[in-house]
């Protein structure tokens, strides 16, 4: 089939917008990462790989933010994926109740992140918050915590909020994936006497792997970029225990006016996300199967 050359013109709008809003900022960040630019002055000096050296060997806060981000990401990826998958299996059939429940689970996704941060900050408040009050009412006062003020658990409290916020979105992807699995495969499994677990392991999961890949990759990127929620709920505190890479980049760029260094952290941030996503794709690819 001969393709008209004019078809390439259809790439132009996308390419133009991509270049302006993605390519140019990315190349700029890469360029400035080798400078000491303060973000304000016209003048800057090239510092070679100095910024990268500083980030990797001389910045204990950056190292802490990477650790915090990994903890946050692991908790969110594992529990958000499992929650979304479990709920998707519960509300799989297109009954009226299930349609309502899907909408209900999806509801948090349409809220603004600042609203979510405000609601959950109130829920977690140690004296006025309803979480500790409910635990008290249930006689579970030993479980009461200083949810956002205890540096040992604050990052996990934020992860719970993130899961509540986005699990509904992932649920929709899983529902679509589950509904695409042919019903006759389940019938065959049933005739063969497969248990529920065997059916899930040998039929559902392999055929759901493409959806799971999307969910896990998207959740990973989302949890690395959870800037607004973290910024609004804890600002990175207490004692940097919830500082993640995205909030640290903001601090370095806009509070310390060190755009050069912030750019180098952004580049490292991009590399970290790309590496983790690559590993996930590789791991999940081995689970894919087609019948």
């Amino acid at each position: 089939m001969k393709i008209s050359k004019s078809i390439y013109l259809f790439f132009l709008p996308g390419l133009f917008l991509y270049s302006i809003f993605f390519l140019y900022p990315t190349v700029s960040a890469l360029f400035y990462s080798f400078t000491d630019w303060d973000g304000l002055s016209d003048a800057y000096q090239f510092v070679g790989i100095g910024n990268y050296e500083r980030a990797l060997t001389g910045d204990s806060v950056f190292r802490k933010t990477v650790g915090n981000n990994l903890k946050f990401m692991l908790m969110v990826v594992i529990f958000q994926t499992l929650t979304a998958l479990a709920f998707a299996m519960i509300v799989l059939k297109n009954t009226k109740t299930n349609l309502f429940l899907r909408a209900l689970y999806f509801f948090p996704t349409i809220l603004s992140s600042v609203s979510v941060a405000f609601i959950w900050s109130f829920i977690y408040d140690p004296s006025l918050g309803i979480l500790n009050q409910i635990l008290e009412l249930l006689g579970l006062h030993f479980l009461q915590q200083n949810w956002l003020g205890n540096s040992d658990i604050a990052i996990y409290s934020l992860a719970i909020t993130q899961i509540w916020f986005h699990a509904g979105q992932m649920l929709i992807i899983f529902v679509a994936g589950l509904q695409a699995i042919p019903e006759d495969l389940y019938e065959v499994a049933k005739i063969e006497g497969a248990s529920k677990w065997q059916t899930f392991r040998k039929v559902t999961w392999p055929l759901l792997a493409p959806s799971a890949t999307i969910v896990i990759a998207y959740t990973t990127i989302q949890s690395f970029k959870a800037f607004d929620l973290v910024f609004a709920m804890t600002g990175g505190g207490p004692n940097n225990s919830t500082e993640i890479i995205a909030t640290y980049i903001f601090d370095v760029a806009f509070r310390s006016y060190n755009f050069g260094y912030a750019s180098s952290i952004s580049v490292l941030f991009m590399v970290i996300i790309a590496f983790i996503t690559f590993l996930q794709f590789k791991a999940l690819r081995s689970d894919r199967i087609s019948y």
Binding site: V61, G149, N150, S151, G237, P238, N239, N240, D251, V252, R255, S256, Y257
Partner: peptide, 18 residues
Amino acid sequence: TNAQVEAAVLSSIENVLG
């Protein structure tokens, strides 16, 4: 005047209160 130094100073207070 250095925001990172300021953050370190404040973090030490949070650390002690923790």
